[in-house]
Simulated scan of single mutants.
Amino acid sequence: MDWILEVVPVPVSNLDRAKDFYSTQVGFTLDLDIQISPDTRIIQLTPPGSTCSIHLSTGPMPPGSVSGLQLVVPDLDTAQTELSNRGVPVTEIMHFDQGTRLPGRGDPWNNFIFFDDPDGNSWVIQERPATPD
Rank of each mutant, 00 (worst) to 15 (best):
D2M: 12
D2S: 15
D2P: 10
L5T: 15
E6K: 14
E6D: 12
V8F: 04
P9R: 09
P11W: 06
V12L: 00
V12Y: 00
V12R: 01
N14D: 13
D16V: 12
R17L: 04
R17S: 02
R17V: 13
R17F: 01
A18N: 08
K19N: 05
F21H: 14
Y22H: 06
Y22W: 06
Y22K: 06
T24Q: 13
V26W: 04
G27R: 09
L30G: 05
L32D: 00
D33G: 03
I34H: 00
Q35W: 04
Q35C: 10
I36V: 15
I36F: 08
S37P: 02
P38A: 13
T40Q: 08
R41T: 15
R41W: 07
I42V: 15
I42T: 05
I43C: 03
I43Y: 00
T46V: 10
P47K: 03
P47Q: 06
P48N: 06
G49A: 11
C52T: 15
C52I: 11
C52H: 02
S53N: 02
S53R: 08
S53K: 08
S53V: 04
I54S: 01
L56D: 03
S57V: 15
T58Q: 05
P60H: 00
P62S: 14
P62G: 02
P62V: 09
P63T: 08
G64C: 12
G64H: 10
G64L: 09
S65D: 00
S65C: 02
S65W: 01
S67C: 04
G68N: 07
G68P: 04
L69I: 13
Q70I: 09
Q70K: 10
L71C: 10
V72A: 12
V72K: 14
V73A: 14
V73S: 07
P74G: 15
D75A: 10
D75V: 10
D77K: 14
D77P: 02
T78A: 14
A79S: 15
Q80E: 01
Q80W: 01
T81C: 11
E82A: 07
E82I: 06
E82Q: 09
L83R: 06
L83N: 01
L83Y: 02
N85W: 04
G87H: 12
V88T: 12
P89M: 08
P89S: 13
E92K: 14
I93A: 08
I93H: 04
M94E: 11
H95M: 00
H95E: 00
H95I: 01
F96I: 13
R101V: 15
R101A: 15
R101W: 05
L102A: 04
L102C: 05
G104P: 02
G104W: 00
R105L: 02
R105V: 06
R105K: 14
G106F: 04
D107H: 13
W109M: 09
W109K: 11
W109L: 09
N110D: 13
N110A: 13
N111Y: 06
I113L: 05
I113S: 02
F114V: 12
F114G: 11
F115L: 02
F115Y: 05
D116I: 07
D116Q: 12
D116Y: 03
D116W: 00
D116N: 12
D117M: 06
P118N: 01
P118V: 03
D119V: 11
D119Y: 07
G120T: 15
N121A: 10
S122D: 06
S122Q: 14
W123L: 10
V124E: 13
I125A: 03
E127D: 10
P129V: 09
P129Q: 08
D133M: 05
D133V: 14
